Structure formats: C-alpha cells, structure tokens
Amino acid sequence: MPKHLIQRWLPDQEALKTHKHLKMFGSLLLDNNLWHLNRRSASAAVGVGLFMAWIPVPFQMLLAAGGAIACRANLPLSVALVWLSNPFTMPPLFYGAYLVGCQLLGQPSQHIDIEFTWPWLVSVFETLAPPLLLGSLVLAVLSSLIGYAFIRTFWRINTVRQWQRRKVARAC
C-alpha cells in the first residue's frame, strides 16, 4: 500500500533523466537503486528530501538529487519532497527557522522591514543569517530524522499487516 500510494505521485523516470537541470548528473542517474521504491530507499529519500527542503538556498532540487545519489535513495521522491518548501510555504518555514535559531542563540528576534535592495540584503544577511542558518540546520536534521523513522516504521507495520492477512487467507 505505501509503495502504490507513493508511486502515484512520483514523476516518471524518463522525465527526470531528461530534465534540463538533472542532466548534469549524467550516467549516475542510470543506477537502478535510485529508481526502486522499497523501505530503505523510500525512508532515505524522505530524509534527504526533508533535509534539503529546510536549506535556504536556491536550487534545492539539485541538492536533493545529489543527496539521493550519494545516499542511494529514491531520486524522484527526494526531489519531490523538496517542494514542501515552495514559494507559498517558504516565508513561514524560514521565519520559524529564524525564531528557532534566535531561541538557540539566546537573542531576541528582530522586526524586519523588507526592501529589495542590495545594501538592505547585505545588512540583513549580517544580522539575520546566523539564527536563520542555525534554525534551518536544526529543523532540517530533526525533520529528516523524524521523516526517516516514520517511513521505516510505517512501512514495517504495513508489511507485517500484509503478512498477517496472507496467513489468515491461507488458513481459510
């Protein structure tokens, strides 16, 4: 059941192989382990995807693809999970990461007046970057560990239930 549920939402293998930004990985994309969906590859993919979703940089999909290749996790699932931080969810996610970073550093959060100028961006980076980066890192690690453990546990429970159903069906 989890396998079929996940496979419904995953992009096609050929579509990812021909994606203009993923071509840089070349023959590494041909590894069959990147395309299999099992408990190990799915849980690793969730871990990689959730981790990369919290990293406040552009091109998170490329980072997720690289992480999936390095961990031999399911590539489409890793790349798809990065979209949890999309243009609509990024502001609250990264503001939450900033608040977590402020708490961990023991400093008060600051009110931010947004201007889209280079001097403003440089000044904001000096004051807001440390708590944002620390909070993002902490939340990335926590969410990836929780996601990994959840998928491993959920998959195992579902497999045991299927075994029990087969056992009952044979007994009848």
Results as ranks from 00 to 15, higher is better:
Leu28Pro: 00
Ser78Cys: 11
Leu37Gly: 08
Leu50Gly: 03
Phe51Gln: 06
Ser41Gln: 14
Ser41Glu: 13
Pro58Thr: 02
Pro76Gly: 12
Val138Gly: 04
Ile146Pro: 01
Asn158Cys: 14
Asn158Glu: 12
His4Gln: 15
Ile55Cys: 08
Leu93Trp: 00
Trp155Ala: 08
Pro130Thr: 05
Val124Phe: 07
Gln7His: 11
Gly106Gln: 12
Val79Asp: 03
Met61Lys: 11
Val160Tyr: 10
Gln107Gly: 06
Gln13Ser: 13
Gly147Tyr: 00
Trp118Lys: 05
Asn38Asp: 15
Phe94Met: 10
Ser41Tyr: 01
Thr89Ser: 11
Asn32Lys: 15
Ala149Arg: 08
Trp9Glu: 09
Pro119Trp: 00
Lys23Trp: 02
Ala97Glu: 06
Met52Leu: 07
Pro130Gly: 08
Tyr148Thr: 07
Gln164Trp: 07
Leu132Glu: 06
His21Thr: 10
Ile69Asp: 04
Ile157Trp: 12
Pro130His: 02
Gln110Leu: 15
Asn86His: 03
Arg161Thr: 06
Ser109Asn: 10
Pro87Ile: 06
Leu50His: 02
Val57Met: 13
Val160Ser: 09
Gln7Cys: 12
Pro11Tyr: 03
Trp118His: 05
Arg166Phe: 07
Ala140Trp: 01
Gly26Thr: 03
Gln13Tyr: 00
Ala140Gly: 12
Leu34Ala: 11
Ser78Gln: 07
Leu81Trp: 01
Ile112Trp: 11
Leu22Ser: 04
Ala149Ser: 14
Trp54Leu: 11
Trp163Ile: 11
Arg166Leu: 14
Leu63Lys: 01
Ala65Lys: 00
His36Ile: 13
Leu37Ala: 08
Leu34Val: 05
His4Val: 08
Leu84Asp: 03
Ala44Arg: 15
Ala97Gly: 02
Pro56Ala: 09
Leu81Glu: 02
Ala15Leu: 10
Ala45Asp: 03
Pro76Ala: 14
Leu28Phe: 06
Phe88Gln: 09
Thr127His: 12
Glu115Thr: 10
Gly135Ala: 11
Ala64Pro: 00
Leu134Thr: 06
Ser43Thr: 04
Gly106Tyr: 08
Cys172Met: 13
Trp83Ala: 11
His21Ile: 05
Phe150Trp: 09
Ala64Gln: 03
Pro91Gly: 05
Leu142His: 05
Ile112Val: 15
Leu77Trp: 04
Leu128Asn: 12
Leu139Phe: 04
Phe116Leu: 14
